[in-house]
Nucleic acid binder design. Structure first.
Length: 301
DNA sequence: AACCTATCCTGCCCGC
DNA sequence: TGCGGGCAGGATAGGT
């Protein structure tokens, strides 16, 4: 389940192996993996062929590579990994049959290794698309601070993530408190803060000793700020070790696993002792998924 | 307008 | 051995 740290690891891998390379051939093995491309698989293939990939950028869980070449407007190859998407480097012949969950294959014009970049996705929640780039809607409004950064239209509504230089922890704490829902729901809302998924939401709430179902608007600014600080710390730690994963859905671009790279304190530890107080971690159903927390040190206030 | 629920999808793991 | 149910959950369409 790739969240910000996993996507960042993928970004780094893609940058080192595929930036500035020209695409010679595109194979879409499953059209559902380009369902968010406006124009379908045929247009995706035709447009992308012959273009050069720029340096990958990321906001939250959205990853994109600016495209250079015969294009009338500025656009990027946008990737969202969803639940099980992977970008993997291979040395495959362009006409080799698809691997088990390989949905899209890019073959490069030069002869460097790796020769191919493939999008794998078991559960098809992820997607690739060619998407126009627009000025960052979240860039500071003052002209002096106006960033030249561009983002794909499909990521235009996604809030800046905690690792962006412009991220302001006090503003983020205020944004969280401006919502009336359960605080965990707000953490998972990518239009408030982006990049957080179920694992790091649970880990951050545990670290800040906040009950996942406490109303976001009932947190003091001080407590909300300490939650944001926990989010930043958790994400930084995970990025530093290259992400984490529970299963082998998540792999680095070179195929290496991020398995258990991070020690988890709450997520997936139901019934096991809380590392802080020793009481049992509880798992409850929440928003069609699971919440893991320590009822003893994460009290609803 | 803010908030929330259902839905998409596949494979694995469990119990029968 | 096979089958059905539950589970994993990011993003969003469409409901209240």
């Amino acid at each position: 389940m790739p969240e910000l740290p996993e996507v960042e690891a993928v970004r780094l891998g893609v940058e080192s192996l595929f930036a500035h390379r020209r695409i010679a051939m595109v194979h879409v093995f499953d059209e559902r993996s380009v369902s968010r491309h406006n124009g379908g698989a045929e247009d995706f293939t035709r447009t992308l062929t012959g273009l050069e990939l720029g340096e990958p950028d990321r906001r939250g869980k959205f990853l994109w590579l600016p495209l250079h070449g015969d294009l009338t407007t500025s656009a990027a190859l946008l990737a969202h990994l969803g639940m099980s998407g992977q970008l993997l480097a291979h040395d495959l012949a362009a006409d080799a049959p698809p691997l088990r969950h390989e949905r899209v294959r890019l073959t490069f014009a030069d002869t460097s290794s790796p020769q191919t970049l493939s999008f794998h996705d078991q559960r098809l929640f992820g997607s690739l698309a060619i998407d126009p780039l627009i000025d960052d809607p979240f860039a500071a409004s003052s002209r002096a601070a106006k960033s030249r950064r561009q983002v794909p239209t499909q990521a235009g509504h996604i809030a800046p993530d905690p690792l962006e230089p412009a991220f302001d922890a006090d503003d983020a704490a205020r944004a969280i408190r401006s919502h009336r829902s359960a605080v965990k729901r707000v953490l998972l809302d990518q239009t408030v803060i982006s990049g957080i998924g179920n694992i790091y939401a649970d880990e951050s709430l545990w670290a800040a000793r906040v009950h996942p179902e406490q109303g976001a608007d009932t947190l003091s600014q001080r407590r909300a700020r300490s939650l944001v600080d926990a989010v930043v710390a958790v994400l930084h730690r995970a990025v530093a070790v290259g992400g984490t994963s529970f299963d082998d859905q998540y792999r680095h671009v070179n195929g290496e696993s991020g398995y258990f790279a991070i020690e988890l304190n709450a997520y997936g530890r139901q019934g096991q002792p809380c590392p802080r107080c020793g009481g049992p971690i509880r798992r409850v159903s929440f928003m069609n998924r699971s919440s893991h927390f320590c009822p003893r040190c994460q009290r609803r206030r």
